[in-house]
């Protein structure tokens, strides 16, 4: 395997990923989003704990390369305390790739992180709409 160079940001978040488990478990104020496939090398789950329409806390679990773990940590950290209606538009693979100084070939795995987070947000919006 050719291991790519890792930025200091990836290294830091890989070693101490803020927002990494334990997960919240089930509850009326908890939603989750999952994406990816173990057999393809990347699988990510986010859980959001909601306080009304705000993300009170965010946790993740990730199976993937160091960039995936670092990206999930980056998204988890930025999501906390943000209202669902005020979420920045840059919770994307491209934005996180830039923040982590990730090489272009990592965009595929980072899209899985984006999908998992988007799925969690969609679940939160559905929950709010049904509340």
């Amino acid at each position: 395997m050719t291991v790519p160079a890792y930025s200091n940001e990836v290294l830091r978040r890989f070693e101490e990923p803020s927002g990494a488990g334990p997960m919240f478990g089930q509850g009326p104020d908890v939603v989750r989003g999952v994406a990816g496939d173990f057999s393809r090398g990347t699988r990510v789950e986010f859980q959001l704990r909601l306080r009304e329409a705000t993300i009170a806390a965010c946790r993740f679990q990730a199976y993937g390369c160091p960039h995936v773990i670092a990206a999930a940590s980056w998204m988890s950290e930025r999501a906390e305390g943000v209202a669902l209606t005020d979420l920045p538009t840059d919770f994307t693979a491209l934005a996180v790739a830039e923040a982590l100084d990730a090489p272009a070939e990592k965009l595929g795995p980072l899209l899985v992180v984006e999908d998992a987070f988007a799925a969690a947000v969609a679940a939160a919006q559905d929950r709010q709409a049904g509340a």
Binding site: F14, Y63, P109
Partner: peptide, 28 residues
């Protein structure tokens, strides 16, 4: 089981070992 190869290799950088897989895209 349950551990992704590139992360394991990176986590084990105190060891000079090798892995047969390649992670350059969503599909390894």
């Amino acid at each position: 089981e349950g551990v992704e190869g590139e992360s394991l290799l990176f986590a084990l950088r105190d060891l000079a070992v090798s892995s047969g897989s390649a992670c350059t895209s969503a599909s390894r």
